[in-house]
């Protein structure tokens, strides 16, 4: 469970990214965060695994007080939280399976990490994760030779190999074409349902957010302006979240919203 209470984030240069955010996310939810770029979506995600620090308020994730976490404790906390980035962030010039296995080094000793000695269990887990996202046969290919969609699947497999309870996704499909994006979102959905893993995703495209998430959080200028089931979202609400009319640019498949 993730609990934000009165959380604010102010960057050192004075920018207020989030203002007095209070919300609760239960285990197993699929949450999409929507809003204009610069509204604070990315910050909200990065606070959860402490890639950036809370300025005010309290944030409890999986019973841990995130503000207090440090050093080894923080690293142990992060092992249960996966994150997927817009740009995939894979290790180039390295095989797919080694990219997935990289998620296991947090649990390994330094010597094994140095020599890249992964256990049989870890290798099987990595292959299982790859199978889970449907690219088992690419395990021994070089990661930088795959297509964008396949690379994002590798990244997703990497987070699965962490055996996470939460997966954070920062614009996971924004740099993919609509068809591939749709398939990747389906993968997220399946993982969310099959393994009861909480998924929290920043979505640039409104239609994708509504299609796959159970719950939508709308952010405008650092404040939550909507929080509810995706079925309740309508044109008026979107206008409130975006502060303007929805344009084609905010939609991946134009027809979806018209339905």
């Amino acid at each position: 469970m993730i609990q934000f209470s009165h959380v604010s984030k102010i960057y050192p240069n004075g920018t207020v990214a989030l203002k007095d955010v209070t919300l609760e996310i239960q285990q197993g939810e699929f949450v999409a965060i929507i809003g204009l770029s610069g509204a604070g979506k990315s910050t909200l995600i990065k606070l959860i695994n402490k890639m950036t620090d809370v300025t005010e308020g309290s944030l409890i994730v999986n019973k841990s007080d995130v503000r207090r976490l440090q050093g080894a404790e923080l690293r142990r906390f992060r092992r249960r939280i996966g994150i997927v980035f817009q740009s995939f962030n894979l290790i180039n010039r390295t095989s797919v399976i080694n990219n997935v296995l990289a998620a296991r080094v947090a649990d390994m000793n330094f010597f094994s990490t140095l020599l890249g000695l992964y256990s049989r269990d870890d290798k099987l887990l990595a292959l299982e994760s790859l199978d889970n996202v449907g690219i088992l046969e690419k395990a021994y290919s070089r990661a930088d030779q795959l297509s964008g969609g396949q690379q994002q699947r590798v990244a997703l497999a990497r987070t699965l190999a962490q055996k996470p309870s939460i997966i954070l996704a920062d614009e996971p499909v924004a740099s993919l074409d609509p068809i591939t994006a749709n398939q990747i979102m389906k993968d997220f959905k399946r993982i969310n349902v099959d393994h009861n893993i909480t998924v929290i995703a920043n979505m640039h495209h409104v239609d994708m957010a509504l299609k796959y998430a159970n719950r939508v959080i709308g952010i405008n200028k650092g404040e939550i302006v909507f929080d509810g089931p995706s079925s309740q979202v309508n044109e008026d609400l979107l206008k409130k979240i975006y502060g303007r009319e929805i344009t084609d640019e905010d939609i991946m498949f134009k027809k979806t919203l018209g339905e």
Binding site: R120, K123, L124, L127, E128, D131, L136, E137, A139, Y140
Partner: peptide, 12 residues
């Protein structure tokens, strides 16, 4: 464990 996975493991 699925046989495909074990098979892939043997191909490492």
């Amino acid at each position: 464990m699925k046989p495909a996975i074990l098979e892939m493991y043997d191909k490492r």
